[in-house]
Design a protein around this nucleic acid. Sequence first.
RNA 1: GUGGGUAUGGCGUAGUUGGCUAACGCGCCAGAUUGUGGUUCUGGAGACCGUGGGUUCGAGUCCCACUAUCCACC
Length: 382
Amino acid sequence: MSNNDYTYELLKTEGRAKRGRVTTVHGVIETPVFMNVATAGAIKGGLSAEDLESIDTQVMLCNTYHLHVRTGDPLIKKLGGLHKFTTWSGPILTDSGGFQVFSLAELRKIKEEGVSFHSHIDGANIFMGPEESMQIQANLGSTIAMAFDECPPALAEKDYVENSVARTTRWLIRCRDRLEQLKQEEGAVNPHQLLFGINQGAVYADIRIDHAKRIAEMDLDGYAVGGLAVGETHEQMYYILDETVPYLPQNKPTYLMGVGTPQNILEGVDRGIDFFDCVYPSRNGRHGNLYTNHGTVRIRNAKYADDMRPIDETCGCPVCRRYSRAYVRHLLKAEEALGLRLCVMHNLYFYNHLMQEIRDALDAGNFAQYKKYKLEALAEEQ
RNA sequence: GUGGGUAUGGCGUAGUUGGCUAACGCGCCAGAUUGUGGUUCUGGAGACCGUGGGUUCGAGUCCCACUAUCCACC
């Protein structure tokens, strides 16, 4: 299980907040970090690998399920793996497909071996379990593979969640064992591939804690908290993090899956989270909802038609350094692809830069102060 | 000047043989979206139907005049 090319250094703490540094075969990740979501190997909205470099992206997140059903992981392996294929040479994390599978599958189709469901592309029958997910992720050769888990609905009954979490634990053991085999096979794309386990348990703190203890014993490369931001309140999410994260190893990266708003991220960092990812910056960008250091800008609104200021006068991103609100608005209205690209670039830079500010604050030992200031600034009206 | 056509929310239009709180698209405004089933979804505001008369129980729909505008002709 040990991996000499992989380290997590805990550089500094403030309360439970962690400032860390992850070293992988694909480069260093300064944490806390926001991973940029590139589901099918590219950020939606037309961003290239070069664009990601220009907005200080550290980690690209790709999706096992999507790459499996379209193009296919065997072909990507044949072409040299996901890094060579996309030309993104930095760290890549692949989601296991668990989340998609459970949004596509009926609950009764879940069995001990795995899940059968229909492809959203052509309706083809697909079966995916721990071994299948690991095989796909090994073919892709990502830096970090995620365990195949079940993400129960937020409103699931407690006895359902208990059974589900027990199965997720058994699946985790199978994931670990299968990935170890795959990494040692001749011609493995990434023999140094890392595996993160995923904590589940919905909003039941006792289940979460038992599960966290159980998977912490497995000495995995990192630990995610999954199954949050799926319909529960923010208070419930923060409560679960308060209760659960202390039982995950402090000397390993922690990852809050699918979260979230800038506010969610500040609260997550405060509770000991290192990794985040979310579709918000890219999706909101495509919809013309832009983040600034002083509230959000709905760039499609008429009041920006003759506004020659940048999207955010305090932002140093390539978009704000050059283009005006009026022009960006015009591009969206005219359905020019460049409009989407600029909006998504700005929003991802905003998130990446937010994480840089958070790391700077942790380095300086004033995260608490920074968080208070930032939450107020984010709540401002434009 | 003559003949013909058209006048409906900011814009473009639908309104059946006159019949319930005048519809739609765009635009505008406001929400939603959290390990992406790829320019999304939901809601809201806004029109005394060019003006003035007339017919009728009832007119955006029919009649008259006026005004504006378009086309053709002189």
